[in-house]
Design a protein around this nucleic acid. Structure first.
Lengths: 251, 251
DNA sequence: CCTAATTTGTGCGATATATGAACAAATATC
DNA sequence: GATATTTGTTCATATATCGCACAAATTAGG
């Protein structure tokens, strides 16, 4: 790609939108400038452009994103058949399991939720389509990383900030690589409170008819309700059933 | 705002992202150009920029959005406290009602889903946060439009494509305005298969502690399961309870 | 297999945008 | 209440982008 095939004004604008992540609902020009590392004048022009288009509003001091911004992400969710196909299966899975079920794909070092069926609330985090978690310590992440080649998986780990979320979090790369091999062999991953104390989860890959892993689905349950060692016994048959059903409908 | 405070390259890029709406997962440069009305060279540069940043991939012919694009919309969902605060209440509501519950806000002439709790699948449409429906024929839309001034509500109707989705859809502006008044008085809206045959729903406004309507929540049920005339009796107490709980926690 | 029709890639002049400094206004600090 | 600091805005100019026109490549049709 040539230099001139890159629209830096566009790239800068996207960076500004992402600056509204986390808990930052309202940003001043200076704040956005600091967060993005862009010049104040540039950030101001991007924000004013967003306002002009209705993606943001400006009250004289703060800029706030509007729901119109959801159109951008929704273009992906609506356009990609995966979430639409998976959702009904997920609903059924959650209902039969009596627990939350989710689906996600890998994006770099993170898993991104693309669909979710809530049955009960156990996590402190609010997960919706678009939510992200570090792949190395999430059950779906383990499954998705296990589907990569050894080299690719190792490369992801190298780029990951292997921070322990709980005392249970496995952070040793070699231990994780061994875990991926185990997951690949047994066909599922179980997480025992590595992400959040009190939460266990079990995930299986979602494969298309050519056997390629295109996503992962999981069931999460309170540790007080199901011990990690019982997760497979209790939920694996349901997950396998959903996995099988999806293999038949995915292109 | 001055002319020069508008970054047209950014605006053009956003338009390109939105071109991936509907069922268009893959777009060629020419297709995106037709959909956006932008010059091919411009679209090409925007798409190459998206690819360079990892928001899209190019296989030599088609451009496809990647899950990274979800970060953009998610910046809003994560940053706005509304979805996070409402979600647990919605989960509880859906569980107690045994039906799907959703929350949405108004964006122009459409309602935008910001949270959802699925219990069962009755709609043919797949609704996730970010999904949009025309406000005039959705229960939450009626509630949100009823919260506007008469002039504003009328203005929205004027800008709306009042297309009938089913034989039941009310499309006469005066009839709709009268409906808004009724909704405002009784404090809830019931939709009887105006959006989709076989689907009824009931919605109430979500108000903050100053009495301002900031969102709407609803419960949808199959018409075969609950007649429209029974919706209020069956679900209004639950909705009112959730509404009251939310009023106490919303800023 | 060749021609016509589309689609895609590229060079260039005109136009639009980014930059960084300078200034004014608003906050914060003492 | 005066000074220091941060913040928002403006401006001139160097730089980058836009859209057009043309060439190359691909696809469709006969």
């Amino acid at each position: 790609m040539r230099e001139t095939d890159f629209v830096s004004g566009f790239a800068r604008g996207l960076k500004v939108i992402e600056a509204f992540g986390e808990t930052r609902q309202r940003l001043t020009i200076a704040e956005a400038s600091k967060l993005t590392g862009l010049d104040r004048a540039t950030v101001r022009r991007s924000l004013l452009t967003l306002s002009e288009l209705g993606y943001a509003v400006f009250d004289g001091k703060f800029f706030t994103l509007t729901p119109k911004i959801l159109r951008l992400g929704h273009a992906y969710l609506a356009a990609t058949p995966l979430p639409t196909i998976i959702q009904p299966h997920l609903d059924q899975l959650a209902e039969r399991a009596g627990q939350n079920a989710s689906a996600s794909v890998l994006d770099g070092t993170e898993v991104v939720y693309i669909a979710r069926a809530s049955q009960r609330r156990v996590m402190s985090i609010n997960l919706t389509p678009g939510s992200r978690l570090p792949a190395f310590c999430a059950s779906m992440g383990r499954v998705l990383l296990a589907a990569l080649s050894e080299g690719e998986a190792r490369s992801v780990l190298e780029r990951t900030d292997l921070r322990a979320n709980t005392p249970n979090t496995k952070t040793d790369p070699e231990e994780l690589m061994a875990e991926f091999r185990r997951v690949r062999e047994q066909g599922y991953a179980v997480i025992d409170q590595e992400l959040e104390i009190g939460l266990c989860s079990i995930a299986v890959p979602v494969e298309n008819d050519r056997g390629q892993t295109v996503a992962a689905i999981n069931i999460g349950a309170p540790a007080a309700y199901v011990a990690a060692s019982d997760m497979a016994e209790q939920f694996l048959p349901l997950l396998k059933e959903t996995q099988k059903a999806l293999r038949l409908v995915l292109p």
